[in-house]
Design a protein around this nucleic acid. Sequence first.
DNA 1: GCCAACGTTGGC
DNA 2: GCCAACGTTGGC
Length: 167
Amino acid sequence: MPNPALLFGGALNYWLMKSEPHECSIDDALAAPAATVPWTGVRNYQARNFMRDRMRVGDGVLFYHSSCAEPGIAGVAEVASRPYPDPTQFDPDSRYFDPASSRSEPRWWLVDVRALRKTRLIPIAELRAHPELSGMTVLRRGNRLSITPVSAAEWRFITKRLMKEHA
DNA sequence: GCCAACGTTGGC
DNA sequence: GCCAACGTTGGC
């Protein structure tokens, strides 16, 4: 088995990951040990597949606050672990418990995410206002995916331009 | 709280 | 395997 980094040309991928700030905000993530949090609770197959099959340690992450007063990008993070089974699926006391899953055949996988820095909040309306970002998956009508891919161009535009502007 | 959009469930 | 009903997401 060749090194996956060779197969993928060593190129990193970029992602946008939604978190509800009352569950885990960018401040919460930065305050965690090693500024790292397990991305628990994803119970959507497409989002799971991104974490389980596509993410690599070091991938860039736009940390997005959702279901809150000010939805938008709140910080920059990175993928900090390889995928592993989400422990909450085995915990009967967890709201994410999945009785249909088993330790021998886990259904739900996650990665650890390390917060790198908090940024000014970039509201979703501002993202929509930039034609450069019109192709972003997260902006698509009716999108509900909590994890979506971000292109290298979108990543550059957001991190190098929007994050340097003032609100 | 509304509601569009979409994923999941389950009867057939 | 179809598809109606239902549940959830998440911006507004």
